[in-house]
Amino acid sequence: MQNRAMSFIFPKWTNTLPLKVAVGAVLVANAAGAGVWYYLTPKYTRVGYTPKQPIAFSHAIHSDQLGIDCRYCHSAVEKSWFSNIPASSTCMNCHSLVLKDDPKLALVRESYQTGKPIPWVQVHKVPDYVYFNHSVHVNRGISCVHCHGQINHMDEVQHAKPLSMGFCLDCHRAPEEKIRPVDLVTQLDWQGAVNGKQLVHDWNVKPGQSCSTCHR
């Protein structure tokens, strides 16, 4: 009599319930953890960002096919913390000669005549509390490709690297893996071998790792 009452309260399947709950909880916790790890870092949130630009400007055509150096347009990149987007007069240097009346360039011509800026959409941005500087990197043999990816093969600029704090620090801890001769900085396809340790030693390259290097 007593036995029947007990089994009425706890049917047989409850025997494995604790195990099932445990397995379920482990699965859900792992999935949540994996989701956070995979989706909530800049590797997911930033990489791949490709805003639609007002003009279908292609780096693949201009850099790769025509062989224009990055600095023809981004002329401040070696001198300043900021790498400028070129003025419309820079485009008109050539586009007053080629594709003079092409409708794809209407906005460039308008901007050139009226002085109204072209509303390019910014792709890369570090938060305002981070101190970043282009010239220190570019003049120390750090190529654009490490932070921007293969821009010279992109028809639309795409955010290729996470630009997170861990990303910056990975290189600041081991610059010898990325460093190259300064005159090859804008050759994004360059694959040659170089003795990084030697360059780091000769130029006395010491990227800071203390917080105040990048947060000042």
């Binding site: 995979y38 791949g48 955010h159």
Partner: peptide, 15 residues
Amino acid sequence: VLGFRGDKSRKPPRM
């Protein structure tokens, strides 16, 4: 819905 890392996206990355 969320896709993979590196997928092309038009939306600005705002967390």
